[in-house]
Nucleic acid binder design. Structure first.
Lengths: 173, 173
DNA sequence: CTGCCTGCAAACTCTTTGCACGAAT
DNA sequence: ATTCGTGCAAAGAGTTTGCAGGCAG
């Protein structure tokens, strides 16, 4: 097997959410709300802004904290109610690494949806790698079972090499 | 990409846990307990037997029910305390499909540990497919990030084609 | 006999939900 | 003026844990 392309997001090459793409996403978010007959509330907007200001994957709890910094009336319940809206509209991707809590991340404009994750088991830091072959694999395998593919995920758990030596991970914490 | 080999476990070709392999596993289980200084209790044995009698992936709750049929003194707590012992000794594999509860499955003797899952989102039925390239992928990608690979998982979520038509899945239920 | 193992029930974590009030349209 | 959205707190699901008594070695 030879993976088509690969692009690794390391700290030195982090895809920052630029102001322009955030603006486009904001528009898309509001449109989506209106289209679905949902209301454009300050809480929903604050949650949106907080989500798109995150440089890394974030949890619901982290999102709550940052959203409250923007609008302190935001409640945990509203965060949990807004997250599905944002994932359904493809503004966010949900990343479940099997750690109890789910992570979220703004989707790139291009809809770069075929991504594998490499997870540092020492600090839960998530690296993402473009892996377009996943989609091909999903289709191929589903076809053999007479199923219609919905999504696929590929995750690698790994130890940080510096952890063994220093006892801590430089990635987070 | 061209996956090296593939083997799909369909109902017609289900890898039954044969009596002989169960016996080998039972020996391994007892050895493991002794080696770790753990005690060989009736409850642990009942849980082992129940696990290896399952023809499909099973949950902790299902395992509890079947273990109780063998020894009705088995408690939920002991099931949850025994599962890690059995996964650490590689007798069971843990399969997390992100559905709230974890699934388990006896490991094949050969240590067929590189398996992808295809999950029917309608009924949660889990198909397994040998995918040895996962290991290669994990190593390759980890190396680039200066990490040491621990494990990898590849999962495809899919709709059962018959579900759209009949409204039910023939796989389970 | 000693100390690990057990069942019970309470605790825990993350997420969802019922309800009455409040705000967007 | 409606009706949907909200915060609060309680409920829920799956899993873990503290404790006192029980059984393996």
């Amino acid at each position: 097997m030879r993976p088509p392309h690969e692009r690794i997001d390391t700290p030195g090459r982090r895809p920052e959410v630029s102001a322009v793409s955030t603006e486009a996403a904001r528009k898309k978010f509001k449109s989506h709300l209106v289209l679905k007959g949902l209301r454009v509330t300050n809480q929903r907007l604050a949650i949106f802004e907080a989500a798109f200001a995150q440089p890394e994957h974030f949890t619901a709890e982290e999102l709550l904290a940052h959203a409250r910094a923007i609008d302190d009336s935001v409640s945990r319940a509203t965060v949990y109610r807004t997250l599905p809206i944002m994932t359904e509209s493809a503004l966010l991707r949900e990343v479940d690494i099997g750690s109890g809590e789910k992570y979220y991340r703004p989707n790139q404009a291009g809809g770069n949806t075929q991504v594998a994750q490499v997870i540092c088991v020492d600090c839960d830091k998530i690296f993402e790698i473009s892996a377009p072959f996943m989609e091909w694999y999903g289709s191929t395998v589903s076809a053999k079972l007479n199923l219609t593919p919905v999504s696929q995920r590929l995750q690698v758990s790994a130890h940080c090499n510096s952890f063994r030596q220093t006892g801590t991970c430089k990635h987070r914490n």
